[in-house]
Design a protein around this nucleic acid. Structure first.
Lengths: 194, 194
DNA sequence: GTCTATAACGAGATAGAC
DNA sequence: GTCTATCTCGTTATAGAC
């Protein structure tokens, strides 16, 4: 039974892996169950066993993505590095995604926001709120410790950094490289360096 | 005959107006000929008379958008204002779009890039190249005149500004306001102020 | 859990009348 | 230019066998 469950979970995970990449590269309206089916080698009907509909699949996608992202942020928190180094690590999360020719999952969904199922919309908002809350707290803490130059309120700075990184990923896509994102990252680091 | 041509051009323009808004709000993969048809009150077949296929419609969309955008840039050039004021006017182009609950047309298409017809892809790249070329030249010129503080090469600065503005529009969408874009605009103005 | 079969609908596109 | 009619295909989803 443990094995059967493991297979089920394994299949669900494999579906999420493929769907996640497809959404990041093609958008929520740019992929179908047929795409996942062909790549995974099981029928569309079987996909519906694991995820009843595209909306539920979308929710599961963001849920797992947000959990992973939060884990990455916790990793940064526990890093033995100065705040500027941690800020660079934060930027490198985005770089790793773009290097795989992917858009940030929730950045992509933000573009398609008006067409998304209600539950998926809320999950996108929650992701950005969570992301901003962490970055804002990090910037404030680091600034108070004198390890980072922060002008203006931390939540405003956090929103600006997130916007710049998401936008850098977006405009990088047509060119197929990370040049713009690297430029933006350098500027962010300079901006917060004392 | 002049009247007939005027009607034809009028219909084509009306189609472009509706399709442009739909793409900016829902994405290229998030709208259909049926949507335009319903809103304009003519059949899908009639739409195909004016634009043979979705790919051609997409090309026409970007072509008109790029022309209008270029005209806005020329307007800024001829403005009787200091460079910082012109830079603010540039940012306000983006704000006007977002205020109508729209994404930048080419920002939206950049997200969907992998799924676009080849000709549309190239048009998106051309738009960003044109946009960057203007902004880069403007920043360099203004900096040399001492009216603007520019650190690093102008093309790098131009790409960063565009990325920040596009990203600000993107992450603003789920929240339905212009708060993030306004914050980003303020930061850009501060950054280039002497 | 996965399959075959099929339903039900929507999308892009074309032919040909008016 | 716009229409009706039709075609073909893709997409989401369900029923029921194995």
């Amino acid at each position: 039974m443990a094995q059967e469950q493991a297979n089920s979970v394994g299949t669900a995970m494999a579906i999420l892996d493929i769907a996640e990449r497809l959404v990041q590269q093609r958008g929520f309206n740019g992929f179908s169950y047929a795409d996942v089916s062909a790549e995974l080698g099981i029928t569309r009907a079987s996909l519906h066993y694991h995820f009843a509909g595209k909306a539920q699949l979308g929710e599961a996608l963001i849920s797992r993505y947000a959990t992973r992202f939060a884990a990455s942020l916790t990793d940064i928190d526990t890093l033995a590095a100065p705040p500027i180094g941690k800020l660079r690590s934060y930027c490198e999360i985005y770089r790793g995604v773009l290097a795989e020719h992917r858009m940030c999952l929730c950045g992509m969904l933000a573009a398609e926001f008006d067409t998304l199922p209600g539950a998926v919309r809320q999950a996108v908002i929650n992701f950005f709120d969570q992301n901003q809350a962490w970055l804002s707290a990090f910037l404030e803490r680091s600034s108070e410790a004198g390890a980072l130059r922060l002008v203006g309120p931390p939540d405003r700075a956090a929103r600006t950094v997130i916007a710049a990184l998401e936008g850098a990923m977006l405009v990088s896509r047509p060119y197929g490289d990370t040049a713009v994102l690297d430029s933006v990252t350098d500027r962010i680091i300079e901006e917060f360096s004392a």
